[in-house]
Each structure stands twice: as C-alpha cells, then as structure tokens.
C-alpha cells in the first residue's frame, strides 16, 4: 500500500493516489495526505486506478476527508475504480456523498 499526492499548479486541487489495499493500515498515511497546512483545497480527487481493495475503515477515512473538506459542501471525486472497489462503494451508496467516476 502506498499513497502519493499531487497538487494542481494553482493550488486549488489535490489528487491523492492510492496503490494496493486501502484499509486501516493506511489510516495515518491517508490522513497525512490530505491534512496539510495548505489545505483544505477546493477540489479533491481520489485516484483509485491502482487500488485493489477497500474495507469499511477505508470508507470511514473517505468520510473523514469529506468532513475535513467541508462536509456537505465538500467537492470530492473518486476516479478510476476497478470493479471490486466500485462494488463496495455502491453497496454503501457512497455515490450519495461523493462523485464517483
């Protein structure tokens, strides 16, 4: 599991890419990725192109990010999910909270 971040040039958007299993062991790393002095940003993108699995604590972490980014006014996109990851997000009906593409 590894997490990398990149910022758009105008500093308005943060992209967080998650590689491998996204579970409780990623807790601190994921938090460090979005909780930084320049934040909160206007937009967040979670790139799950290389994410193989999510568990419920990963869903919890996404909720924490949403809370940090302004709760109902948060602007968070989840991108490039594989089928398994997509299924987990769908069962939990997270499309009601996040833009999932």
């Amino acid at each position: 599991m590894s997490i990398t971040t990149s910022r758009s040039t105008n500093q308005a958007e943060l992209t967080i890419s998650i590689k491998g299993r996204f579970d409780f062991s990623s807790h601190q790393e994921f938090r460090d990725a979005y909780e930084n002095p320049e934040g909160p940003y206007e937009h967040y993108k979670i790139d799950m192109a290389e994410t193989t699995y999510l568990d419920s604590s990963a869903l919890g972490m996404l909720l924490l990010l949403r809370d940090y980014a302004g709760g109902d006014s948060a602007n968070i996109q989840i991108l490039n999910c594989n089928n398994d990851v997509r299924k987990i997000l769908t069962i939990s009906n997270f499309e009601q909270l996040f833009v999932i593409q």
Partner: peptide, 8 residues
C-alpha cells in the same frame, strides 16, 4: 460516533 465510524 466519531466521523468515519458508522453501521452498515
């Protein structure tokens, strides 16, 4: 419950 904790 704190944010991030829930019950399916």
């Amino acid at each position: 419950l704190p944010v991030g904790f829930f019950c399916c």
